[in-house]
Structures are given as structure tokens and as C-alpha cells.
Design a protein around this nucleic acid. Structure first.
Lengths: 197, 197
DNA sequence: CCTCTATCGCAAGGCGTCTTGCCTTTGGGG
DNA sequence: CCCCAAAGGCAAGACGCCTTGCGATAGAGG
């Protein structure tokens, strides 16, 4: 239990912070070299010049460690496209996501998100998707003002219709994410949400 | 190398077949009780009355074993709905898939399909999705004859648009798969592929 | 029925994960 | 500047995954 003298925030340059930085850096290195399967706590501890038990005590499992390391390196801010037209905005959103998941860290993050045993990070997942959904919703709201789609649509549903096929290919059917495919999805969604003439 | 006397097919009631059946049965039991994480080769071998090394020699990793056990139990035949209208056919397809992935074995299969380290089963995955896609394509072809959708659309794309949001919710955002959602997807896709009036 | 080989049982062992109890070090607060 | 709690280092060890060499056995073909 943290006594009354227990500091809430340690000095950012202290030993703990150094250890944390060294371990996270080593983790990202290993991750980028060999992927999730190559992740070994012993290896990381050695590279970071830290004892194994320190890693275990702080992070528990290597997946917690990997997630924290990746999140630490990943800027999750999503740029909200504003090209002036719904079609190009949606395309930018989709292509941006495709580009991200093709990034080494992006793919790592996606793979980690699929694990079931990360109870601690429910919040992180929720925040991640809320963030991305907000970008989609902003784009749709502007399109609505311009009369480019029917009003009253469920933005979440439209967002999922846009992003779903991409993730399905990536994770399940493992077909390539070529331009034709991405643009086809945009056109299909666009047709689905267009106002009745 | 199999000599000239090497039989291609062993007797189906022989020792090997008995071991295989016992191990697969034990595997499914464990899987249904505790999920993928509870899968321990030692445990399975004990339950099946078989030595651990026999399991390792035959299946290698527990994920190969799990996949074979699940595939062995799963009838992957997809019923092709034919209700007379595209809307209800698509709804049946989507609800059927949702029902399958909510099955214990269905969810297990989905989780296993996500693993990257199953090089041996690329073929199985391809066959699985080809099968399901064929059902979707048949439905779309009939709809096309009835003039319920624009001709010349990429059936694969439409299929992915229908199934993508479901899998995205299930795997990534982990939001519930309620009726409203599923029906919303059907309506959106339907609007997206409808002939221009 | 007999042979012969694929498969299984067995035992020993390497390796990685993760825990735990004890001691040492560090650095924030008084 | 000193004290002391939090964090790290260390060592021992449990446990599960997976491999391997060898001997035993069952069952398919002759």
C-alpha cells in the first residue's frame, strides 16, 4: 500500500524510467527484427541490460510488454481528411488505414489487439477505435451538410462497412489489399449511403 | 521415403486410427472446457491414454492439433439460402455466419484461422472461404437474374462488404452482434448494389 | 501365418515462461 | 544530507512445450 510519503510520479530520469526505456526499446527492436513469435523475455532482458525478473515483475507477460512497447512508439492520432468531397475523404480514410496496417508497428498492433488475454487493455482498445471512429464520423457529418449522403444514417455502421472488408482481407482471407479493392469498397459504400434521387 | 511395400492407407480401425480418434476427442473436450489457452499437450495425452511424444510426433504443435480437431468436428458445408428475394437471402447468409461464429467450435475455428504460424493450412483456409464465397455468389447470381442488383459487380467485393463488418466487430471493436446491426449491414449493402433507377 | 516397417511408448533433456524469497540499490521527501 | 520504501538484482525452481534416440508392438502385405 502506498504510504503518505509515496510519490505518485517518480523522477522521469530515475532508475525506473531508465529501465523502462531500455526494455521498451529492446522490445521494439526484437519485434521489428523477428515479429511477435521471436519475442523472448530472456533475450530482451539481455539486450536491455536488465534482469529477467525485473521484466516479469513489471510487465507480467511478453504480450503486455509488446503492447506497451508498440503503443509507446505509435502515434495513434488519426488525421481527419477534408478534401471537400465525401468520396475522396472516405478514400483517404481507407487508404490511410491500409497504410498503417502495412507499417511494421501497425501490423504488430493489430495482431496484439486480436489476443483475448489482455484484460488490462480493454480501455486502450476502446480509445483506439473511438479515435478512429471520430475521424470517420467527422467526414460523414461534413458530407451530410453537403447533401452527399442520406441523413440519419448510423455513422458507426457506415464506418464499419468501410473498414470491415479491409480487415477481413488482412486477417481472414489474406488476399492482397490493392488499390482496385480499396476503391471498390469506397464506391460500394458511397452507393450504399447516397441520397435517394 | 515410402518403400514399394508402403501402404498408402492404413486400416481405419487400426492402432493409429484409434490413437488419432482418442487424441482428437480429448482435444475437443479440453477446447470446449477451457478454450485455446487451456490446451496442454500433457493434459490431452493423459486424457487420451496416449504418450505425449506420440502427440508431438504426429501434430507438432498444439495449434496444429487444435485446428485438425476442430476441422474434424466441423461441418463446413454452407447452406445456400433461396428465399426468392435478395434481401432475405443476404440476411440469411449473414445471420447464418453470425450463428456459426457464436458456436463454440465456430469461434475456435475463427481464432485458429487468425494465427500466422500455420503454414500447413493455407489450403484449408482457402477452401473454407471459397466455399463460403460460392454460397454468396450463388445468391448474388440469382438476384442478378431477378434484376435486384446492378450486373457486373465484383461478387467477391460484395461478399466482403457483407461479412466484413461482422468480423470487424467480433475481432476488433468487440461490440455485440445484435439483430439491428446485422440488418443494418444488409440494408447498406443492398442500397450499395441496387440498380440505378 | 510370418515378416517387416510405421507408429507408439518410454526416458532423458534442452529451452522459455513465469514465480518467489531475499538482499541490494536508488532516489524522492523530509 | 539522511532515511526508507519502491524498484531492481539475484538465485532457485516449478511447469509446459518440444525434441530425440532407442526399444517394443501392432497391423498390412506377402
Amino acid at each position: 500500500m502506498p504510504g503518505p510519503r509515496s510519490p505518485r510520479v517518480r523522477r522521469p530520469g530515475g532508475r525506473s524510467a531508465r529501465v523502462r526505456a531500455a526494455v521498451l526499446a529492446a522490445t521494439v527492436d526484437v519485434l521489428l527484427e523477428g515479429g511477435l513469435d521471436a519475442l523472448s523475455i530472456g533475450d530482451i532482458a539481455r539486450r536491455a541490460g536488465v534482469h529477467e525478473s525485473s521484466v516479469y515483475r513489471r510487465w507480467g507477460t511478453r504480450f503486455n510488454l509488446a503492447l506497451e512497447a508498440v503503443l509507446d512508439r505509435t502515434r495513434t492520432e488519426v488525421p481527419v481528411p477534408d478534401t471537400g468531397a465525401l468520396r475522396t475523404d472516405l478514400a483517404a480514410l481507407l487508404h490511410g488505414t491500409a497504410a498503417f496496417v502495412r507499417t511494421p508497428l501497425g501490423e504488430l498492433l493489430l495482431r496484439l489487439a486480436l489476443r483475448e488475454d489482455m484484460a488490462d487493455y480493454e480501455g486502450a482498445r476502446e480509445r483506439f477505435w473511438d479515435h478512429r471512429f471520430a475521424a470517420g464520423s467527422a467526414v460523414l457529418a461534413r458530407g451530410e451538410e453537403r447533401g452527399e449522403l442520406r441523413p440519419g444514417l448510423d455513422h458507426r455502421l457506415v464506418f464499419e462497412a468501410l473498414m470491415g472488408p479491409l480487415h477481413m482481407r488482412l486477417l481472414l482471407t489474406r488476399e492482397p489489399l490493392d488499390e482496385t479493392f480499396l476503391d471498390g469498397v469506397v464506391e460500394l459504400v458511397l452507393a450504399g449511403i447516397a441520397p435517394h434521387e
